[in-house]
Amino acid sequence: VPQRAWTVEQLRSEQLPKKDIIKFLQEHGSDSFLAEHKLLGNIKNVAKTANKDHLVTAYNHLFETKRFK
């Protein structure tokens, strides 16, 4: 089981690129989880459509539901 890579403050910070969060989610989330949160596909394309709040919610949801690969 992966550990949380970032704190809530870090997740919301401008310093953390959306692409980093997407990469983490794609590496650790199950396909059904990723599909549900519309996070499947090319990281660049996902970054265009997903806002930061959406990614933070998905990140927290992944750990709450433990839907890891």
Rank of each mutant, 00 (worst) to 15 (best):
Ile43Phe: 08
Gln15Trp: 10
Phe63Cys: 02
Val46Pro: 02
Asp53Ala: 08
Ile22Gln: 01
Glu27His: 09
Leu11Pro: 01
Thr49Trp: 15
Ser13Trp: 03
His54Cys: 13
Glu36Arg: 08
Leu25Phe: 04
His61Gly: 09
Val1Thr: 10
His54Ala: 10
His37Glu: 04
Pro17Tyr: 08
Lys69Thr: 05
Ala5Leu: 15
Gln3Leu: 09
Leu40Gly: 08
Thr57Gln: 12
Thr7Asp: 14
Glu64Thr: 09
Phe33Ser: 00
His61Pro: 00
Gly29Val: 01
Gln10Thr: 04
His37Trp: 12
Phe68Arg: 02
Pro17Asn: 10
Ala47Arg: 14
Lys48Gly: 09
Leu55Asp: 01
Leu16Trp: 04
Lys44Ser: 14
Ser32Glu: 11
Lys19Asn: 13
Ile22Arg: 00
Gly41Ser: 05
Gln10Gly: 03
Lys18Ala: 15
Gln26Ile: 08
Leu34Met: 03
Val1Arg: 06
Glu64Arg: 08
Ser30Arg: 06
Lys66Cys: 12
Phe63Trp: 06
Asn42Ala: 13
Lys38Phe: 12
Thr57Leu: 12
Phe33Cys: 01
Ala35Ile: 12
Trp6Glu: 05
Ile22Tyr: 03
Leu62Tyr: 02
Phe63Ala: 01
Thr7Ser: 09
Ala58Val: 05
Lys44Tyr: 15
Ala35Leu: 12
Asp31Cys: 15
Lys48Ser: 13
Ala5Glu: 15
Lys48Leu: 15
Leu55Cys: 05
Val1His: 12
Glu64Ile: 08
Leu40Lys: 10
Glu27Asp: 11
Leu62Cys: 02
Glu27Pro: 00
Lys44Ala: 14
Ala47Phe: 06
Asp31Asn: 13
Ile22Ala: 03
Leu62Pro: 00
Tyr59Gln: 01
Asn60Glu: 15
Leu11Asp: 02
Val46Gln: 04
Arg4Leu: 05
His54Lys: 12
His54Val: 10
Leu11Ala: 02
Ile21Gly: 00
Asn45Lys: 14
Lys23Phe: 07
Asn60Met: 14
Phe68Trp: 06
Arg67Ile: 04
Trp6Ser: 06
His37Lys: 07
Lys23Thr: 10
Val8Ala: 11
Glu9Ala: 05
Trp6Met: 05
Ser13His: 05
Ala58Lys: 02
Phe24Met: 03
Thr57Lys: 11
Ser30Cys: 10
Gln10Asn: 04
Tyr59Phe: 04
Ala35Ser: 10
Thr65Ala: 12
Leu25Gln: 00
Trp6Phe: 05
Pro17Asp: 14
Glu27Ser: 08
Gln26Lys: 07
Leu62Ser: 00
Thr65Gly: 11
Thr57Ser: 11
Leu55Pro: 00
Lys38Asn: 09
Arg67Trp: 06
Gln3Ser: 09
Asp20Cys: 13
Gln10Tyr: 06
Gln15Thr: 12
Leu62Val: 03
Lys38Trp: 09
His54Pro: 02
Phe68Thr: 04
Asn45Cys: 15
Glu27Ala: 08
Val8Met: 10
Asn42Gln: 12
Gln3His: 12
Leu55Thr: 02
Glu14His: 11
Leu40Trp: 10
Gln10Phe: 07
Thr49Ile: 13
Leu34Trp: 01
Gln3Ile: 12
Phe68Asn: 02
Lys52Thr: 06
Arg67Phe: 05
Thr65Asp: 08
His54Trp: 10
Asp53Gly: 07
Phe68Ser: 02
Leu40Met: 12
Ser30Phe: 02
Ile21Ala: 01
Glu9Phe: 03
Ala5Tyr: 14
Glu9Arg: 02
Ser13Gln: 05
Lys69Arg: 14
Val56Tyr: 05
Glu14Pro: 15
Phe33Tyr: 07
Leu25Ala: 00
Asp20Gln: 10
Ile22Asn: 00
Phe24Ala: 04
Val1Leu: 12
Lys19Val: 13
Thr65Lys: 11
His28Ile: 07
Asn51Tyr: 08
Thr65Leu: 08
Thr7Arg: 02
Thr65Trp: 11
Pro2Thr: 04
Asp31His: 13
Ser30Ile: 05
Arg67Asn: 10
His54Ser: 12
His37Phe: 15
Ser30His: 09
Ala47Asn: 07
Gln15Phe: 10
Leu34Thr: 01
Asp53Arg: 06
Ile43His: 08
Leu11Thr: 02
Leu40Arg: 10
Asp20Pro: 05
His37Asn: 07
Lys44Arg: 14
Lys19Tyr: 13
His37Ala: 06
Thr49Gln: 11
Pro17Met: 09
Leu25Ser: 00
Asn51Pro: 07
Thr7Trp: 04
Phe24Leu: 02
Val1Gly: 08
Asn60His: 07
Ala47Pro: 03
Glu9His: 03
Lys19Ala: 15
Trp6Arg: 05
Ala50Cys: 12
Lys38Tyr: 12
Leu11Val: 03
Val8Thr: 14
Leu62Arg: 00
Val56His: 02
Val1Gln: 12
Lys18Met: 11
Gly41Ile: 02
Leu39Lys: 00
Val46Thr: 05
Lys18Ile: 12
Asp20Lys: 13
Lys52His: 04
Lys38Val: 06
Leu34Val: 04
Phe68Tyr: 06
Ala47Gln: 13
